[in-house]
């Protein structure tokens, strides 16, 4: 079976300060570290595991992004990906979820595939639009928030489990080819081997522009998006926590005293 995995390079903002830049519409990324979007990492692993289980097939890694994205693409290749394509064009910049899905669909349309894997959502914008939009654009069925994949008949049909609220799983059968949006926790992503990394460094990453994909600049990126980001602001929070100040010794003592006073200790 031929599989495609869409991956995105995103900034890690969970542990760093996020500063709005001068434009008000972006953040200062100069001091942030970047890596593969969390659920995309699971999507890569799922594709490679299926290939290994079936003992045949290919995994093609596709990413929309600038040259820096090569780093996450190469990591996916190092783990067992076979080929790679990167979509880069000024025209792709500033796209919302639908515009991104359009570019990916144009790239994937020309490939032979049984399953297209994507992450369920991107950690930066959190849109969660690509899986379902991509399925519709490619004219194949889709399922997202997928946390279990079982191939019933290679190239024909799969059984997938979608994770719903409260951890309830919804199982469905789906015809291939299809698009699956993968949720975190579906598998245990591997680390790339040293040998894999060395081999991946030599692989070619095909770079495609909008024109290469037969796309008009007005269909993609900011021009092809419905949503216009006007500005970022710090979030409106209710009442902030009372922050206990001091060295660990003091803050721990203060907190212990509060818990005692509240009858929690």
């Amino acid at each position: 079976m031929n599989m495609v995995v869409c991956v995105k390079r995103v900034p890690d903002t969970a542990e760093s300060e996020v500063h709005i830049d001068a434009s008000g519409k972006d953040i200062d990324k100069s001091r942030l570290s970047f890596g593969i979007n969390e659920c995309d990492n699971y999507a890569v692993e799922e594709a490679i595991q299926i290939k290994e289980r079936l003992g045949e097939g290919t995994v093609t890694v596709v990413s929309l992004g600038d040259k820096d994205s090569d780093e996450v693409i190469r990591m996916a290749l190092a783990k067992g990906g076979d080929e790679a394509m990167r979509l880069e064009d000024d025209a792709f910049k500033g796209g919302d979820g639908l515009a991104t899905a359009k570019a990916l669909a144009a790239a994937i349309k020309g490939l032979e595939y049984d399953i297209v894997f994507t992450g369920a959502l991107a950690d930066d914008d959190g849109y969660a639009v690509v899986p379902a939009a991509l399925g519709e654009l490619l004219g194949v069925p889709h399922a997202t928030y997928v946390k279990k994949v079982e191939i019933l008949e290679p190239g024909k049909r799969a059984k997938v489990g979608r994770e719903l609220e409260g951890g309830l799983m919804e199982f469905l059968e789906i015809d291939l080819p299809c698009v699956l949006g993968i949720q975190t926790g579906i598998n245990e992503p591997r680390y790339a081997s040293f040998k894999g990394i060395k081999q991946a460094a030599k692989k070619e990453i095909a770079v495609k522009s909008a024109a290469d994909l037969g796309l008009n600049a007005s269909e993609v990126g900011e021009a092809g998006s419905w949503a216009v980001l006007e500005k970022f602001t710090p979030p409106v929070v209710g009442e902030m926590a009372e922050i206990l100040e001091g060295e660990p010794e003091e803050t721990a003592a203060k907190l212990a005293a509060i818990l005692k006073e509240k009858g929690l200790v």
């Binding site: 919302d96 979820g97 639908l98 959502l121 379902a132 519709e136 928030y145 719903l164």
Partner: peptide, 24 residues
């Protein structure tokens, strides 16, 4: 709703209808 159902539905519906979409 931006729920497990909603995210599986809304983007495909928007593509089909050529509608404008923003999630969550």
């Amino acid at each position: 709703g931006n729920t497990a159902q909603g995210v599986d539905l809304a983007p495909a519906l928007a593509v089909e209808l050529g509608a404008s979409l923003l999630t969550d």
